[in-house]
């Protein structure tokens, strides 16, 4: 009798262990696929850069070094591209019209993936004309997605990597990084009422500037005010679910 029970227990345990292995394996595979996909996209973009020439006259629209046409054929949710030179961040930006949380665990080819995609919620317009545009991305252990933002914790990296570029089908937008810090998990757009009134915008800017702990970096020399256009990059922080690491940048140049 005793022996039988032990046999049953060991079989169950074995099955559980196998199941766990299989699930881990699937997740790992999916992540690799997502990684490959992004690398393909990045490579395509690199090829595009070589193909585009500098604008000849100020009248002609600027050549965008991203092939949005083919990207949008694969997934019409893709509407922008983000590049931060000096980091791994070189990804398409998506926005789901129906489900703001979709791209938390789906990559841009609609496949399930724990890496997700770099995305905005549909509170933000697709032409980056809002006061505050928030881009979300996972902090992957592999260094993928927005894990590269973590480098901004160090002041010397912060000072030498101030440029963020956003490409959309109609324009190239250049942003300058002016703050990097850890915040709680408040929903920025809700909390600051999407910056609809000057008071809301002032509150957002004041909160960013008021931080005085050892981990925060804020460059007061970058001119930001209620009329600026802010790009916030948000990712998870190692402290846990209730914290986010934020990097703020403000628009300095828009080339159409």
């Amino acid at each position: 009798m005793k022996k039988k029970i032990w046999l049953v227990i060991s079989i169950i345990a074995f099955i559980c262990a196998m199941a766990i292995f299989v699930m881990l394996g699937i997740r790992h595979y999916r992540n690799l696929q997502a990684q490959k996909l992004y690398e393909e996209y990045a490579q395509k973009r690199q090829e595009n850069i070589h193909q585009t020439a500098a604008p000849e006259s100020s009248d002609a629209p600027v050549e965008i070094p991203v092939d949005f046409e083919s990207l949008q054929k694969d997934n019409p949710d893709i509407y922008a591209w983000i590049t931060i030179p000096g980091t791994e961040i070189d990804y398409p930006v998506v926005q789901s019209s129906t489900d703001n949380a979709y791209y938390l665990n789906h990559s841009v080819d609609y496949a399930e993936s724990s890496a997700g995609a770099i995305f905005t919620e549909n509170y933000n317009s697709r032409d980056f004309s809002d006061f505050l545009t928030v881009l979300y991305g996972h902090n992957m252990k592999s260094g993928a997605m927005f894990a590269g933002l973590r480098s901004y914790e160090d002041n010397s990296f912060f000072e030498s990597h101030r440029d963020v570029t956003i490409y959309t089908p109609d324009a190239i937008r250049k942003y300058r990084v002016f703050a990097a810090y850890v915040e709680d998990d408040r929903h920025l757009l809700y909390y600051y009422n999407q910056g609809q009134t000057p008071e809301d915008r002032r509150a957002f800017l004041d909160d960013a500037a008021a931080r005085r702990d050892m981990q925060s970096i804020y460059d007061a020399d970058v001119p930001v005010d209620e009329n600026s256009r802010i790009l916030t990059l948000s990712t998870c922080h190692r402290l846990g679910d209730h914290y986010r690491f934020l990097v703020h940048a403000c628009l300095v140049e828009e080339i159409k």
Binding site: E153, D154, N155, V182, E183, Q215, R238, L239, G240
Partner: peptide
């Protein structure tokens, strides 16, 4: 602004 994180991971800062 941050809690005293118990884990080794959370409780450090980077500088230079």
């Amino acid at each position: 602004d941050l809690p005293e994180a118990e884990e080794e991971e959370g409780n450090y800062i980077r500088h230079d």
